[in-house]
């Protein structure tokens, strides 16, 4: 492996570039007038899609580890989460800086007044502390609190999916797929066996949750 600690460390830079591909594709299409009739809407939809996909991918890491036994997958989680935040930021920037162009005074009003924008903006806000505390140093410093704080990602993902669901006019098939994936990943986290045992033995109290 030479300069890398192990194989994962060697793959990581490639994985980083892979996560940048959607952005490169967007930039390429923008420069080549390949975004179609309504380029601003395209930029918004595609950056938003990738924010959601990467957020769901982040939430899929734990189930993936448990199901496959490939525990090293955890080492990709932070990068996935940070890229989800990155694409959400690109998405918000395109909306605020390009789409609203010339009508910036509407921005705060729109965030407050339009439920789907309120949800999307809240999701982005929730991701900020998670991005800031994503470093090793922060993990050490926050200890147990780190895990509690990072459970915010579940709420952010739910808000993000609802943001998509709410803006659609009539055909809900695509956002419902995202919602289905999210629900699947959340249901997997419910400790069904422990839950069953606890209920059977009549004990209550805090249940362990797989994070």
């Amino acid at each position: 492996m030479g300069m890398f600690r192990d194989r994962i460390a060697a793959i990581k830079p490639l994985f980083f570039l892979l996560c940048l591909l959607p952005l490169a594709h967007l930039v390429w299409d923008t420069l080549h007038d390949a975004l179609g009739t309504d380029p601003v809407a395209q930029l918004e939809h595609r950056s938003g899609d990738w924010a959601l996909r990467l957020l769901l991918a982040t939430l899929a890491i734990t189930p993936l580890r448990r199901v496959t036994g490939w525990h090293k997958a955890i080492r990709f989680r932070r990068m996935l989460g940070l890229f989800a935040f990155f694409y959400a930021t690109v998405h918000l920037t395109i909306y605020a800086a390009i789409d609203l162009g010339g009508f910036w005074s509407q921005l705060l009003g729109e965030i407050a007044k339009r439920p789907y924008i309120t949800l999307g903006f809240s999701a982005w806000l929730l991701l900020i502390p998670l991005a800031i505390t994503s470093t090793q140093g922060m993990m050490r410093r926050l200890g147990r609190r780190w895990q509690r704080l990072h459970r915010l990602v579940y709420i952010a993902a739910l808000l993000g999916v609802l943001h998509f669901l709410w803006l659609v006019k009539a055909d809900h098939r695509e956002p419902v797929i995202y919602l289905g994936v999210l629900l699947g990943l959340m249901l997997w986290r419910v400790p069904w066996r422990t839950l069953g045992r606890t209920l059977a033995s009549g004990k209550s109290g805090q249940l362990p949750v797989r994070t």
């Binding site: 975004l35 601003v40 390009i98 789409d99 162009g101 509407q106 007044k113 339009r114």
Partner: peptide
Amino acid sequence: PRWSQKTERRIAGDGFNLFGNR
């Protein structure tokens, strides 16, 4: 109920334009 009707994004003109469509 879900979005503003105060402004619109005008799709017109030759070629591609990202800015100033609203």
